[in-house]
């Protein structure tokens, strides 16, 4: 189990670096799909199958399709940049160093006495059996009922984004002369 996890983590890191170095946008998008799929595999090992399914379907599927269709409208090649990569590298190294310094205080991975496992009172996992009339998946119970308003808000965000995309991409047929003006 550990060997598989470490292989996935090594591949994840390698894929991310490859995406950063790549000039060909089409290949970079494909590698982003691979990256999403690998992170979905790691989520499955981390006992979160629901998130893994969603990440594989949405991250590796829908996001890739959306980006490829954008690429079809905009052009494939990334122009070689003249900027020096030194300043971004410095910023990233300093930020990463600060974040890693911050993790030294964090509760350890997988420890049952981590604060996240004690608060809020985890008995809601047991109660969900009664409250949801025997629904076996606790994640579904929380998503659809205990945190139902959150999911309603999420749906609102998706609706708003959909309307905004339609408004942005709509072609105005009634005023063709506006298309010509700068």
């Amino acid at each position: 189990m550990n060997l598989i996890a470490f292989a996935i983590l090594a591949l994840l890191a390698a894929t991310a670096v490859t995406v950063a170095r790549m000039r060909d946008l089409w290949a970079a998008i494909m590698f982003t799909g691979i990256y999403s799929f690998l992170s979905a595999s790691w989520m499955l090992i981390l006992d979160a199958p629901d998130v893994a399914f969603t990440e594989a379907a949405v991250g590796a599927g829908i996001a890739t399709v959306l980006m490829l269709s954008t690429l079809a409208l905009t052009g494939k090649e990334e122009r070689a940049t003249t900027r020096s990569p030194l300043i971004p590298l410095l910023v990233v190294t300093v930020t990463g160093g600060a974040l890693i310094y911050g993790t030294l205080d964090m509760p350890h991975f997988g420890d049952p006495s981590d604060p996240i496992h004690l608060y809020p009172n985890p008995s809601f996992v047991e109660k969900s059996q009664e409250d949801m009339h025997g629904l076996p998946n606790v994640v579904t119970a929380i998503l659809a009922s205990y945190r139902g308003y959150d999911t309603l808000g999420e749906t609102t965000v998706v609706l708003t984004a959909g309307i905004a995309v339609i408004l942005i991409l709509r072609r105005d047929e009634s005023h063709p002369e506006q298309q010509e003006s700068p």
Partner: peptide
């Protein structure tokens, strides 16, 4: 813990939007 899974399910969908 199921709680992070729930939060991240919401975040994934909002992220794609």
């Amino acid at each position: 813990n199921p709680l992070p899974s729930v939060l991240m399910l919401t975040a994934i969908v909002v992220g794609i939007a």
